[in-house]
Design a protein around this nucleic acid. Structure first.
Length: 674
RNA sequence: GCCGAUGUAGCUCAGUGGUAGAGCAGCUGUUUCGUAAACAGCAGGUCGGGGGUUCAAAUCCCCCCGUCGGCUCCA
């Protein structure tokens, strides 16, 4: 295989594939520290892997890499990477301007690992254009152009950009000097361009023939640029608004040295290798079929097994935490959705009604209305609250075609849903309980790092929210206290709350660094009202219960997509669809091998037999590729001694051990969820 | 949904106007083997779908669908 060269002589116990895989993780984790993510300002956590088998090797690899990189830094050693990347965006803009004198410029910030610039061009860019632009950039870098700053008054600057037919720059200056407030997603308001506008003065940076609205800072001259590479073109709406023109965005990356650039590209390649979509087919986990439809995953063979293991674990933990499991149908009468309000605020995500005997049914996009029915089946007393209903409920939502993405964005998915009904005085402890359970699940499943947001109201726009100030204050406090109680770092985001209440969102990061929302914990002031929920209090009067929606893993599909990437397909023993495979050396060992398999199965383990008439080498290779944790080789010696020769997925060979010991060892790891 | 790219065997890919190819996987046979690929043979594709141009289309054009990279949105 291609990564064979990575299996250095020094680590004979570690196979090339395993080492290559781990090296990717190492690089991934190392590249991220200290660099705040630009879009959130939050510390971004690298993906970690719990496998300790080869940690030492990774550390060694890491040291070697760091050294190699260190010796390469020369001219641009002291240059801040972000500054360099932003300057690279300017250089790219200059190259684009050379090619398209009529180009209109959007914004061009540095981002994690690189930069982009948005252009409004007379025609669409081709891959050949990218090459040409890159060529010109290299020429510009070589010609050592200096970055020069100057300041203009507001009117002067406006005239300057109007004259050059740069409407986007004009708009930026106009908006940002008028103190207009923009939405949280308007990247322009936060860009270097915007920072070029201050106190009525507008700063510009020029290098070569290109001058841009910009707050800087920049490198001194284009020489200090390091290694630059353009990656792709993509459409991007001006100021993130789909109603505004779509510009062409070119993404690029820039590093201090060619070595670092190569390292980065290699890392991207490694990330692609553990993309859940690839592993899904390689490991026989799930599939999509054109015949079935886009965004509708099918769990086959090992994937379904893996999923059921997770579901069993999930159900068990929920029972322990005092939840009651319920089942609800996949469709409901249209009036249900009218009452719940989904018809008015969620319809574009719902599939069209199904007409049966003059009654209209709709496929469920959420489970809540059904759980509310369970609550409403009879009058509830304050004594029986809190009530916690949970369900792995499969919902269907119409998602625009362009947004589908493997298991991470699908049209039919199963939420690990729950609705908690409680008294106001119980809210805080309920939220606490939810976080407690969430952490237990995440940790057991191998995730230890998250990005958490506490989404609260937009204080400048209170009219669009339901509920009283008092309720909001209480709900927000309950959420926040629970986060603090669990010492979880979080970011408070104003204006991100849903109209019916505040919420906590937890994101995880995928193999390519994209963030995906998983957990969500939302208070709801809306549905109890709409369905007229109440309980009879101590005072004999009716009271409105608080309601909490929460999904912890989010959707089984998304979660498993993330988990596949997290483990790179090498699942820990308790999750592995096949925990052990028995490999007879010759056909005459098949009977003994079958006995061993039966012993493993009797102990509740998932074991298989590879009795093909292949050589052990081939059997081992296939088992490795399937990332099966235990390979048990049996030949004459083992059959005689009632033993198995144990080979681990890491490549480590434990030699011959008594069958009973091995069964016990694997059973223990399984029971301990390792 | 929008911008761009792309779709050939189960998988990875070659084939740019003249009769559809390779490796792996599969099947059959031989081999019975000690830690990452035994050997030989066979079989497998309406070239994503539909329409068009042409004597002739995997190849050129149009429409649709899927996929990939982004944007908007989101569990």
């Amino acid at each position: 295989m291609g990564e064979g060269s990575l299996g250095g002589e020094s680590h004979p116990a570690v196979t090339a594939a395993e080492l290559g895989w781990n090296r990717a993780i190492t690089a991934f984790t190392v590249s991220k520290p200290r660099v705040p993510r630009r879009d959130t300002g939050l510390f971004c956590f690298g993906v970690h892997h719990g496998d300790t088998e080869t940690r030492r090797h990774r550390v060694k690899e890491l040291e070697n890499m760091a050294q190699a990189v260190e010796t390469e830094r020369k001219v641009n050693e002291g240059v801040d990477l972000r500054t360099m990347r932003h300057s690279a965006a300017h250089v790219m803009a200059e190259a684009v301007q050379q090619l398209f004198p009529d180009a209109r410029f959007g914004i061009g910030p540095a981002i994690e690992d690189g930069f982009y610039y948005d252009f409004d061009l007379p025609r669409t860019l081709t891959p050949d254009d990218l090459e040409e632009i890159e060529r010109r950039m290299k020429a510009i870098i070589k010609s050592d152009e200096r970055f020069e700053r100057r300041e203009l008054g507001r009117e002067e600057a406006l005239a300057y950009f109007r004259e050059r037919n740069q409407p986007y720059k004009v708009e930026l200056i106009e908006d940002l000097t008028s103190g207009e407030v923009h939405g949280a997603r308007d990247e322009a308001a936060d860009s270097p361009d915007a920072r070029g506008i201050r106190d009525g003065m507008v700063s510009l940076y020029r290098q070569g023939s290109f001058e841009d609205l910009c707050g800087g800072p920049h490198v001194e001259s284009t020489r200090q640029m390091g290694a630059v590479k353009l990656l792709r073109v993509a459409g991007a709406y001006w100021r993130g608004d789909e109603k505004r023109p779509q510009l062409q965005r070119i993404y690029g990356t820039a590093w201090h040295s060619q070595t670092e650039l190569d390292e980065y590209l290699w890392r991207l390649e490694e990330a692609r290798k553990r993309d859940h979509r690839r592993l899904g087919t390689d490991l026989g986990l799930f599939l999509f079929s054109d015949q079935v439809g886009a965004g509708l995953p099918i769990w086959g063979e090992h994937g379904a097994l893996l999923r059921s293991i997770i579901e069993d674990f999930w159900k068990e933990e929920h029972r322990k935490a005092g939840y009651q499991y319920v089942y609800s149908p996949h469709i409901g009468l249209i009036d249900l959705w009218r009452t719940s309000g989904h018809l008015s605020f969620y319809r574009e995500n719902m599939y069209a009604p199904i007409d049966m005997d003059g009654q209209e049914f709709m496929l469920k996009p959420m489970n809540c209305p059904f759980h509310l029915q369970v609550y409403k089946r009879r009058v509830r007393s304050y004594r029986e609250l809190p009530l916690r209903y949970n369900e792995l409920g499969t919902v269907y939502r119409y998602e625009p075609a362009g947004t589908l993405h493997g298991l991470l964005r699908v049209r039919g998915f199963t939420q690990d849903d729950s609705h908690i009904f409680c008294r106001p005085d119980q809210l805080e402890s309920e939220i606490n309980g939810v976080l407690e359970l969430a952490l237990k699940l995440w940790r057991t499943l191998g995730f230890h790092e998250y990005q958490i947001e506490l989404a609260v109201r937009d204080l400048n726009n209170l009219a669009k929210y339901l509920g009283t100030d008092e309720e909001w204050a209480q709900a927000e406090a309950a959420l926040e206290k629970a986060l603090i109680a669990h010492s979880l770092p979080y970011r408070r985001v104003e204006g991100e709350a849903v109209f019916y209440a505040p919420k906590i969102d937890i994101h995880l990061v995928d193999a390519l660094g994209r963030k995906w929302q998983c957990s969500t914990i939302q208070v709801d002031f809306n549905l109890p009202e709409r369905f007229d929920l109440y309980y009879v209090g101590e005072d004999g009067a009716r009271h409105r219960p608080f309601m909490v929606h929460r999904a912890l893993l989010g959707a089984l599909e998304r979660f498993m997509g993330l988990m596949i990437e997290h483990y790179g397909g090498a699942f820990p023993v308790w999750l592995a669809p096949v925990q052990a495979i028995v490999l007879p050396i010759a056909d005459r060992h098949n009977d003994y091998a079958a006995e061993v398999v039966q012993k493993l199965r009797d102990a509740g383990l998932r074991a298989e037999l590879d009795d093909r008439s292949e050589r052990v080498n081939a059997k081992i290779r296939d088992a490795q590729l399937q990332k099966i944790p235990y390979m048990l080789v049996v030949g004459d010696r083992e059959a005689e001694q009632n033993a198995v020769a144990v080979r681990l997925r890491s490549g480590e060979n434990l030699g011959a051990l008594p069958v009973e010991d091995v069964v016990q060892r694997i059973a223990r790891e399984n029971a301990e969820r390792k």
